[in-house]
Structure formats: C-alpha cells, structure tokens
Design a protein around this nucleic acid. Structure first.
Lengths: 297, 297
DNA sequence: ATCAAAATGGCAGGTTTCGATAAAGTGGTG
DNA sequence: CACCACTTTATCGAAACCTGCCATTTTGAT
C-alpha cells in the first residue's frame, strides 16, 4: 500500500467519480482505475462499489475512508515539518559562547540571524571558554564560540576576529589621558582579575610569565561585571578582553590599550569535525561570519 | 515521499548501517543508498550523517525518526485493520429477520457463523416481515430474512426453506390426536391470530378468501408468544408458521398440520441488487444457506 | 438503442533495481 | 609517521519493472 493509492482512494471517495478524481489527481481515468484496483487487490476486497453510473463506498471502504484521511493528513504534516526544518522556517539551535563574547557582540549576530530566520529558536549557553569547547566536543550543541582550542582532531575552529586585551582604569585615574599603558606600569597598581579557571586569567598569567613580569592579584572575582564595578569603584585596575570595553565603560570605568606585551587571541566558531551540521547551524555560522569577520577589537 | 523511503530511513536509523539495513529491507545496498538520498533530496537536506565507518542522525533526522516511526506504525495498523475486515476477522454486520424466523431458526445460523468468524459482531433486527424488506431496500442493512417480496428490480431474493402453516391447539383439545386438521373444522373454534399489519395474518386472510372460507377472529395480538400463551390457556385455536412450532409447544400448546388448503411460503434471504455486499455479509449468506437450505418445516 | 462512464489491453517512458566498481575513512603495521 | 589493507558507502550502467497514457471495449442507466 502506498501513498498514491490512498490518495487516489480518498479523492474518488470524495468526488464519487473516477473521471473527476482522475482530473484532480492529474492522472488519466484508466490509470486511476488501475490504482484503485491495485489497492483493492492488496487489501483483499472491494472498497468502492462502482457501476458506470454510480459510485458508492463498500462497508470496508467506509471504514477505510476516515482512517485514510487521517493518515494522509499526518503524512503531509510530517513532510511539511521536516521540510520547514530544512528550510529554516522552524527548529531550534543551541550555541555556547564564552561570557565576554556572549555579553558583547553575540547579540548583534543573533539579531541578524533572527531577522533572516525568525522562526528558529536559539538557546545561548554563556559558559567558561573551556566549557564551551567541552560542550561542543561532547556533542551537546553544534556551535561554540570561544578562542582557538588548538589542534584538535575532532574539532574545527573558524576564526571570527581578534580580541585584544585592554586595561581598565577608574575614571578619575591619573593615567586615563594616556594613549596606552604598559604592563609594567599597570602592575604597580592593585590588580583585579578573574578567578583561576577563567581563560582570561590563564592567558594573562602565561603571557606575563613569558615576559618575566610578576602579577600580584589584589582581588579576583568570577564575573567580568564584578571586576568592572570594582575598578569603577576605585579598588584597582584590570585587564580584560576588548570585547568587554563597552560593558566596562557603561559601568563607569575607563579603557586603554595595554602594551608591552600586547595580548590578543583569536575568537572563532568551534564545531565538531566529522559531524553533519544542521542547516540551521550552517546558516548561523554564515550569519556570524558575515557579521563579525575581520572585526578587530 | 513514499512509504518505502520512510521505512528505509527508519531501518537505517535503527541499525546504523546501510548494509545491514539493506539486508533487512531485502534491498541491495546501492538501492538503499539511493532511496535514502532521494528522501533527503525531497526533504531538502541530510537526515543521516554518514562516513564509511560511522552513521549518525543529523538533527533533522533525529526530528524525523519518531515521527516516521509513528507514521509507519499507523500505516501498518490501517492496512491490517482493513485487511482483517476483508478476511472477516473483524467488523460488524446487521441483519433484519421476521420475528418467527428470528426467534426460531436464526440463532442456529448465527451460532455457525460465530464459530467460523468469531470476531464479527452481528446486530439482529427482529421486525415485521414488511419492515425487513423496507430496511433492506433503504440500505439500512445488507441482509434481510423474510418471505419473497415478489418481483422487484432492486431486491434479490434467495429462498432458504419452505415454511408451512400449522394449527395450534390447547393441549387438552379433543382434536389433538388427529394427524392433521382442516381449515373448515378449525374455523369452527374461536380463532386467535396476529393483528393486521402482520404477514401471517395477511397470508391467512388472502388464502382463506381464495378458498371461500370465512375467518372470524376471536382474539388478535401483536406477538406470536402472546398467541401461543392464549392458545395454551384454552382461549381458542390459531394457525402460525411452522417455524414457531417449538415455541408453541414450549408454551404448552399442541401443533398439527393444517390442510385444505395447506398454506406455505418461501422464506429466504433478501439483499439489494446492484450493491456490493461486504465480505462479512457474503459469508453470512453462505453460512445461512448451508445451515437451512432445503429444510422444510 | 443510445449515451456516458469505468474497465481492459497494448505500448512507451521513466523509475527502480541490481551487480560491478570506485571512493573514502579507519585501524593496524612497519 | 606514513602507508596499506579492510570495511563500508557512493557511483555507474544495464535490465527489469512499474506506471502512465491512448485507444478500445464493456457495462449500466436513461
């Protein structure tokens, strides 16, 4: 039994005419005759009692009709459902992004995506950079935004932009008029930064060590927002990704480029290699690239 | 999208191997490859992410799988349902029978039918003989059991048996030892019969009129059971179809053949001509014929 | 008898199917 | 670390099959 046969039966049952049904189905009358006959043979008896003048449903046909209608409706729904998913009119996509990106640029990308594919739901996981990588690796979601996880067989990294690190100073700090500030000077002040598992903290420590600079941390916190507020309050200075510049300024802190050394890292899209991405994910990646490509903070 | 494609997809999703799935589906592996490919093309994207070593569902495939499973299950159910109806394992059939038959022989036929097709429900309408004919003519049910409705374009009559009319006497009646009884003698007693719309009453009146005999009715009732009880009580005598002989005897009356004239009528199966009978109905007719054919009461 | 509609038969085009073969990814091995 | 062998899917070409149409016949109703 196939869909064509069932559709033919329902149409004949509705029109009570082979000729008219054949028209509707874009078939010739003989073909329709045969189709119905095949269906009847398959099911083991007549569904339609037909003379040249009158078509009527047999009791079995009567029983099949509502079932067939429902079946066809569900069939079409299923097809439409998947079709919509593929054509991005529907569906859901999950993204993990490191907090600095999630809270700064990501919304702009999401806005572009939503304008293009308004029916797709997007779920954002703003978690630590390492967690982003883990979540993608475990297949918990399709797209991660973080910095380059390094050579990795099962992960792909597509760079989006460079993220410099910037110094954050209280607004009334004497150095705020300078064009930039060196680490050496910066480290003479009380230093506020993120707590250890953070990638920002790690990167700062590693880089300073390479340049034989010593970091003494006065305060550390979990969230950049806290750091920003602490700096604004005058507790000390900090170094954060440029991505957070706007956030820092909004909290009343002042941002300056930090040099000697300049710290920068690639931020990009992480996906699993060897795994087919959903069309929604492919579209999301496309939008993100268009939005952020070659942008340097 | 067709059933074959969906079944192929579900099987591959279950086995996670094209080769194994092809075996299960009794297809060659290339054919299965192409089937899946066609389904994917139709829906607009990949459902299965496949390498030579690993097969995995894409998000869309994941979404389709439960839908497809449900759809196929319903599909099979529908097919099975109708199939069972045709093979008489299921279904319902309605019969109308005149009361004299319904209360006497019919149960024997129904028993045979039920033994052969235990899943079929049977609905009995024990109504007046004329009503039986009307119900069949109107298409309210497929099978009627009554006497010959006469030449009729839209009805078929298939005789089952001859039904003689018999005299019913109180058990202590002086004539009960006779081999038979003539109408002339019978009419000397108080006569009990059915009320006018009944076919029994009509047939008796018509026949007697043809033989110049006069019927004077002392009592008339609606149901044969009442007539029987009245006779048994000694209120008078009656003439009823032989079908009711057992019933009369059970009620304490005594039955004798009635002669001069003998009244008999054909009892048979009435169906609509030019209408396809359900398989259940065809089987019922077959059973009834086997059970009652050539039986003469 | 005539007319209209479904059934049947024959034929063409397209699809499906298969076997054979190619391509690709994986895992082991030197 | 590169290469080879093995396994599995993808591709290709030919044959079988099915499906569709047209022409014709059959059938039932007027």
């Amino acid at each position: 039994m196939n869909v064509k046969q069932l559709r033919a039966f329902v149409t004949v049952a509705r029109t009570l005419s082979f000729a008219e049904a054949a028209n509707i189905l874009h078939l010739s009358q003989p073909t329709l005759s045969l189709t119905i006959k095949n269906l009847e043979d398959l099911l083991g008896g007549r569904l339609l009692s037909r003379t040249t003048r009158t078509i009527a449903l047999t009791p079995e046909g009567d029983a099949l009709l509502p079932i067939a209608k429902q079946l066809l409706a569900q069939w079409d729904n299923a097809e439409e459902e998947i079709h919509q998913r593929f054509s991005l009119k529907k569906g859901k996509i999950a993204i993990a992004a490191m907090p600095s990106f999630a809270a700064s640029l990501l919304p702009e990308g999401l806005l572009n995506y939503h304008q293009k594919y308004p029916k797709i739901k997007v779920e954002i996981h703003d978690v630590l950079a390492d967690t982003v990588v883990d979540m993608v690796r475990q297949g918990r979601l399709e797209i991660g935004i973080s910095f380059d996880p390094g050579n990795n067989d099962d992960l792909n990294f597509k760079p989006l932009m460079k993220d410099r690190f910037i110094a954050v100073l209280p607004k009334d700090h004497p150095l705020r008029t300078a064009k930039n500030i060196s680490w050496k000077i910066l480290l003479e002040h009380d230093f506020i930064t993120l707590q250890r598992p953070s990638s920002v903290r790690q990167l700062i420590e590693e880089t300073l060590e390479q340049h034989n600079l010593t970091l003494s941390v006065a305060y550390d916190a979990h969230q950049l927002a806290t750091v920003g507020r602490m700096v604004a309050t005058g507790l000390g200075v900090a170094v954060v990704p440029a991505l957070c510049e706007q956030q820092m300024q909004e909290q009343g802190a002042y941002c300056l480029p930090v040099i000697e050394p300049t710290i920068a890292r690639d931020i990009g899209i992480i996906t699993r290699s060897r795994t087919q991405l959903s069309t929604a994910a492919i579209a999301m990646i496309d939008v993100l690239i268009r939005t952020f490509e070659k942008r340097v903070n």
